[in-house]
Design a protein around this nucleic acid. Structure first.
Length: 399
DNA sequence: TCTGGGGTCCTAGGACCC
DNA sequence: TCTGGGGTCCTAGGACCC
């Protein structure tokens, strides 16, 4: 069987590039890619970290994920712009649309990355490396931002290749190039070898991807279990995972929020939890799913995270039901420590159409849901919270 | 460097059943 | 009686990705 040919298209510095392009398009003269600039949260709300940085900011030592405060210390003339996700979605959609012209199999891996399965398209497109350059240049000419294209015989190799050197580059990492191009790289560069795993691998003298590829598989799986097996295969360039063009259904839906100040009062935290229940239940109903596991996560002022979850015998998606379960979880778990982050996640979806009843299932759920759906419809029609829970109205939003 | 928010998957331990 | 071992489910926590 002939080898697959996979492309990985990765937007260079996506958030910053997209903000820059959008500003130019709306008539601004300044290209923020050419000055020290970052995309970051609002620092008054103490959530401020650097999400993306321009090259001039990088040269001054600004790194991703550091606080805006610290970034500004390194670079006093730094310009800070908030992320605008609706704009990012537009550019992401536009790029995806172009890519779909070249292959029927395009996978949206994240907002700024796509995989294309180009296997067997040579007769249509001619030389595929040339095509990669064509695609890259077309995206720049039509949309105004640069991308990297990685080419390989698997998704893993294509992805590793697109990471080689940036920006605006095409790289290959075919199976016969793995030894020469991938094995010399530090182990931290390997997909799925994060900070903790990299540290552990270094402790047993595995410092490069090649070291892992040639290590004893038994020893690796003993120490790292399933992750070890996977990393060993990755280090050898083995990855059969297919390019999947349709988005897989969500396995979980949740929201969390880092608060402007640590909360110490039970009622304040419950208010936040109720807000999250509103958000999460709206999303569940939009996807038309019922969740049977509810997870509440708290992070305290010392950055210690803890969570509690509840498995139900039936699925729920109304605000009242979700908040009820979440509230009970919260009572069980809260240690009366100052809380910095509150999270609410739902997983283990059950089919909405087979609405299950059980003796524990309050009979009001069905009626509740009808009302809830109606509220969703009205709110979406008027694009705002025309109808909301009365208890959410008069609340002190500043916490 | 006083550290976001959206996800997925894995593991270990305990409860419970046979 | 107070002792085994396997299977399954649930829970809490941790690691990784973008």
């Amino acid at each position: 069987m002939s080898k697959r040919i996979i492309f990985h298209v990765d937007v260079n510095n996506a958030f910053l590039s997209w903000t820059a392009v959008d500003k130019l398009k709306s008539g601004e003269k300044l290209d923020i890619r050419k000055i020290p600039a970052v995309i970051g949260g609002l620092k008054e709300e103490r959530k401020g970290i650097v999400l993306a940085k321009s090259m001039p900011a990088k040269i001054k030592g600004v790194v991703t994920a550091e606080t805006l405060l610290s970034a500004r210390k390194k670079c006093p003339d730094l310009k800070i712009y908030p992320p605008t996700f609706s704009v990012y979605k537009e550019y992401s959609d536009a790029m995806h649309k172009i890519l779909c012209e070249y292959s029927p199999l395009v996978e949206r891996y994240s907002i700024d990355e796509c995989f294309l399965d180009m296997t067997g398209t040579e007769r249509l497109h001619g030389d595929l490396e040339n095509l990669a350059y064509t695609i890259k240049d077309r995206i720049y000419n039509e949309l105004g931002f640069t991308v990297n294209v990685g080419i390989g015989n698997s998704k893993l190799c294509a992805k590793m290749a697109s990471d080689f050197s940036k920006p605006n580059k095409v790289h290959t990492l075919y199976d016969n190039e793995i030894k020469e191009k991938m094995w010399p790289l530090p182990i931290s560069e390997l997909f799925m070898s994060g900070k903790k795993t990299t540290e552990k691998l270094k402790q047993i003298d595995i410092n490069t991807i090649g070291n892992l590829a040639n290590a004893d598989l038994n020893m690796i799986t003993r120490k790292f279990k399933k992750l070890g097996y996977m990393l060993y295969e990755y280090a050898n360039g083995i990855d059969d995972s297919p390019v999947i063009s349709e988005r897989e259904a969500y396995k979980g839906i949740g929201n969390s929020v880092t608060l402007p100040i640590d909360l110490t009062e039970e009622t304040q935290i419950l208010d936040v939890l109720q807000d999250l229940a509103v958000q999460v239940s709206e999303r569940l109903r939009k996807e038309n799913v019922l969740a049977s596991v509810i997870v509440v996560q708290l992070k305290n002022s010392n950055f210690k995270s803890y969570s509690h979850q509840k498995k139900l015998e039936y699925g729920i998606n109304s605000v009242n039901d979700i908040y009820f379960v979440a509230k009970n979880l919260f009572y069980k778990m809260w240690k009366e420590d100052p809380i910095r982050l509150v999270g609410l996640r739902t997983t283990d979806f059950v089919e909405n159409k087979f609405e299950q009843m059980s003796i524990f299932n309050p009979p009001s759920i069905k009626e509740n849901n009808k009302v809830q759906k109606l509220i969703d419809e009205i709110n979406s029609k008027y694009n705002s919270k025309v109808i909301d829970k009365a208890s959410l109205l008069n609340r002190n939003k500043k916490y």
